[in-house]
Amino acid sequence: MPIFTLDGQNIPFEPGQTIMEAAMAAGVYIPHLCWYPEYEPHGSCKLCSVKVNGRLCSACTFPAAEGQEVVLNSEELQQLRLRLTQMLFVEGNHFCPYCEKSGQCELQALGYYVGMTDNHFPHFFPKREIDASHPDVLLDRDRCIFCGLCVRASRDEGKHVFELAGRGIETHLIVNSATGKLGDSELGASDRAAHICPVGAIVVKETAFRVPIGRRKYDHRTIAEMSLEEEAPLVRRRHDAKEEG
């Protein structure tokens, strides 16, 4: 098997794998929010930024190659990841104390992981639209980080309910229905798209606050541990399926 090095550690890879896939399969966590092993990478959150032979690249889209020297945890990159996380917090409206995703949210857990104690930048306090029209699913755009996971999940299950519209600071999540309302879309409560949101932007109604504080996903375990436990096996499975296919 060909290998590259990640912070000096040898990482074997199958040709065609990205740096992210190879690292995760080898049990090395690379921070990410918009990547999920079962979907095409989106490359937008930039938290997986690594230096490949000295050049800044997104590990989720960059193909692994023999002999690459990849740096993940330099002081510079850790600082970059902290600032990116803070930017995600200030560009939306994230009030964790009364968010139903708190304790189970990947953005919040990433904040803990990168040691974020403040938001550094001035807050935008943007005005975004909340859509409560669906009987089973709530869309709270205040917490959307534009990761595009709901877009990909819905597309892959043949429904195309969500799309990201606009560019840069104008980016916003739109819903595919005559009224633009979630209640008039084809989204079902059991769709993957209703459950894939890493933050509290798409939440299934009547499920909030069921898990008590102290027993929530990230109360005692880091996003790195949880990601390696839950996502790394999916990378391996996806790869095995490709081999057979």
Binding site: F89, H94, F95, C96, P97, Y98, T117, D118, N119, H123, F125
Partner: peptide, 13 residues
């Protein structure tokens, strides 16, 4: 939270 990001009072923003 309120000192850091405005918290509940910032709901009026």
């Amino acid at each position: 939270a309120c000192a850091i990001n405005g918290g509940v009072p910032a709901l009026r923003n």
